[in-house]
Design a protein around this nucleic acid. Structure first.
Ligand SMILES: Nc1ncnc2c1ncn2[C@@H]1O[C@H](COP(=O)(O)OP(=O)(O)OP(=O)(O)O)[C@@H](O)[C@H]1O
Length: 671
DNA sequence: CCTACTCAGTAGCCT
DNA sequence: ACTGAGTAGG
């Protein structure tokens, strides 16, 4: 392989470094991802069996992309073990399940499932009955998760983030214990458990040696967004052989809310003695104008970064533009117009992205694009699998996979009219004592005739039994369940037809899987993004515009990028303004956003916004006031201040007059 | 005792 | 739009 034709000198050094610890730390667009790709190939070319290489990435998508690109040059690269820390945790945990007395087909709880489970434990412990306020389920999950990922005591998390709940510390500690027991008993693992148990297993000398021998070469991408727990995992996985390469950019650490510890990357050389450090200097992605702005963003940070982004090839282009609009609909029209214009100039839709801080900022644009039949994909925000009806059907599938899944039963039973928490619990008490669906059927068959939920629940258990015994594949099994669920769906939702379509689409996805466990695990670890109608029409050539949160755009690049919603309180987010670190992370997020663009970059905002049911005046993001940023933006000569509201015309109508006018209008005029 | 309904308050980023 | 609190009613 002639590396020199694909890599610069520093990249080659990194790719040719095969043994011992290596840290590649470099700015955005400097070719870090490319280094990983070629290092995988180089390891294989040097005789390393691909199965001995472990590549941990931030999303499963990233791992898949890197490995499939590498596999084009050497098919063996496809055999490399790649995925997220969480996915790797699942894999290892399934291998060792037998030794830990847990079911091999354990269920992975997503965040909402974990919240439900926590809520149940807290309710059982009667923590909501006392006179003191106890955190809501979402906060419970966040507090415990933060403690796990940052390796902090619950008290420390409370002090730092939830001082108002500081008195709940003993209860929260008890809750964590009960919740852990509950999960272990039922073979549930939430996201944090996947890391925690992996860490626990690696704490066993024998496991550490075993995995160290199995995976002789470890690579970690986006290392700046790993947390302390993941840092420990890397330390243990690499302890045997020290062949650990981590890659990242400390200025791109944007997952603090998930416990990311950007110091991890700076501490790496301390953890692994004799670490070789390689810095990549040249940027291959963007024009110098875009990089000037990026450098301006870096310059606005508290922390001084020595890096200075410079285009490798001296690429020149337009200065990034800052544009103001009256309201979101107008902003959407501008973006859609520009997309169409670029498309007609010959740009592929794949080279266009619209980025935003929060997913709801894209709603207007979604409407506008759909209206114009411009195909697009949405990343980030509410997932397809977060919607109630999809979760309902997944609960049925969970029961099919594991008839003793109490949380799934609870969700399903609560859908029955006449069944609330108490009845559901009572039924579950009877159900879990039985070992199969067929035996469970008796519970419903023997219900008193006056139980109004009897008919429906008997239909359900019948469908479950049939799905288990008669279906030839998962697609068929799914249809049994869907048909049983439909009456309740139609009852529950006004827009059931739309939801039914979603569930039919889920049928297609389900049919692609061999086993339910696989499907459920995939849905938990990498939920499908919200599907968007397959609009065709005038855009025959393939290609789709990307609409993405900045977080989900990490590591990606496009020729044309629109960053919308540059509004104070939205970006930087009001939540983040509470602390200096919060604001600093927003700036890093801004840096990530602008460095996604190769050639053209637009920042937009609107004067009016809509929030909490009222129209508001927006203030431009404070980022735009920073001189180092402003000077690299081309904006309208004068900043159009919000148009003053026109004076209201004076009219005076009293109640009688109003009623008389109303009566006039009520005069029927239609056919 | 339990469920179903109404109302008020709030709305982030992800595995 | 969606959640939790509070209350009316089975
Ligand atoms: N040596 C090179 N010569 C030419 N182009 C390169 C070279 N290295 C990388 N590139 C290209 O530069 C762009 C950015 O590279 P890459 O995605 O690897 O950067 P990165 O450092 O991972 O960026 P980020 O930190 O934003 O994820 C890609 O389009 C890549 O193909």
């Amino acid at each position: 392989m002639e590396l020199a034709s694909f890599l610069n000198a520093q990249q080659q050094q990194a790719v040719e470094h095969l043994k011992g610890p290596l840290l590649v730390i470099a700015g955005a667009g400097s070719g870090k991802t490319r280094v990983i790709e070629y290092r995988v190939l180089n390891l294989i070319a040097n005789g390393v069996p691909p199965g001995q290489v472990l590549l941990l990435t931030f999303t499963r998508r990233a791992a898949k992309e890197m490995l499939s690109r590498a596999a084009k040059r050497d098919p063996k690269a496809a055999e490399v073990e790649g995925g997220t820390f969480h996915a790797f945790g699942v894999k290892v945990l399934r291998q060792f399940a037998g030794h830990l007395g847990i079911k091999e087909n354990f269920t992975v709880l997503d965040q909402a499932d974990a919240e439900e489970a926590l809520h149940r434990c807290a309710t059982d412990l009667k923590f909501y009955e006392g006179p003191n306020r106890f955190p809501q389920k979402a906060s419970l999950q966040k507090i415990l998760s933060m403690a796990t990922n940052k390796r902090l005591a619950i008290g420390q998390v409370l002090e730092a983030e939830y001082p108002n709940f500081i008195d709940c510390r003993p209860q929260l500690e008890q809750l964590r214990e009960v919740y852990s027991q509950f999960k272990l008993e039922k073979s549930y693992f939430d996201y944090d458990d996947l890391l925690l148990y992996l860490r626990l297993l690696l704490g066993q000398e024998a496991v550490r040696v075993h995995l160290g021998n199995q995976y002789r070469y470890l690579m970690v991408d986006e290392y700046q967004d790993t947390n302390l727990l993941q840092g420990e995992i890397v330390g243990l996985l690499g302890a045997e052989h020290q062949n650990v390469m981590v890659v990242g950019d400390d200025a791109q650490s944007i997952y603090g809310f998930r416990g990311a510890y950007h110091q991890n990357i700076l501490d790496f050389p301390g953890k692994f003695k004799n670490t070789r450090i390689i810095k990549l200097e040249a940027n291959y992605r963007s024009t110098q104008e875009i990089l000037d702005l990026s450098n301006g963003v870096l310059g606005g940070m508290e922390k001084a970064y020595e890096k200075h982004l410079k285009s490798a090839e001296g690429r020149q282009g337009d200065k990034p533009k800052l544009l103001f609009f009256k309201e979101p609909a107008e902003e959407a029209v501008f973006v859609a117009d520009a997309i169409q214009e670029f498309y007609h100039q010959g740009e592929s839709l794949y080279e266009m992205a619209v980025l935003f801080r929060s997913s709801y900022l894209s709603f207007h644009l979604q409407t506008e694009l759909a209206k114009r039949r411009i195909p697009f994909d949405v990343f980030g925000g509410k997932k397809f699998s977060d919607t109630a009806h999809v979760k309902d059907l997944l609960a049925f599938l969970k029961i099919l996979a594991n008839p003793k899944d109490e949380l799934a039963w609870n969700r399903c039973l609560m859908l029955l009219p006449g069944v609330g928490p108490k009845t559901a619990q009572k039924l579950i008490g009877q159900l879990v004592g039985r070992s199969s669906l067929v035996e469970m059927k008796a519970v419903f068959d023997t219900l008193g005739e006056n139980a109004k939920y009897k008919t429906q629940s008997v239909k359900w258990i019948k469908a479950l039994v049939e799905a288990q015994s008669q279906a030839r594949d998962l697609g068929e099994a799914y249809l049994f369940l869907l048909n049983a669920y439909l009456p309740v769906l139609e009852d529950q939702y006004d827009n059931w037809q739309q939801r039914k379509k979603d569930l039919e689409m889920l049928a297609q996805i389900a049919a692609r899987y061999q086993s339910i466990e696989e499907l459920l695990t995939d849905f938990a670890l990498e939920p499908p993004e919200r599907e968007v109608s397959e609009v065709m029409g005038i855009y025959k050539e393939e290609g789709r515009v990307t609409l993405s949160t900045i977080h989900s755009a990490k590591g990606l690049e496009w020729g044309n990028v629109f960053l919308i919603g540059m509004i104070e309180g939205l970006f930087p987010s009001a939540y983040a303004l509470k602390s200096d670190e919060g604001l600093e992370e927003e700036l890093r997020l801004f840096y990530v956003a602008v460095t996604r663009a190769k050639s053209r970059l637009f920042l937009t905002l609107t004067h009016y916004g809509f929030s909490g049911g009222i129209t508001q005046f927006n203030k431009p993001s404070r980022f735009l006031d920073q001189p180092g940023i402003q000077s690299h933006l081309e904006s309208p000569a004068e900043r159009t201040s919000p148009a003053p509201k026109p004076e209201l015309p004076k009219i005076g109508l009293n109640k009688e007059e109003l009623l008389a006018k109303l009566a006039e209008l009520y005069q029927a005029k239609g056919g």
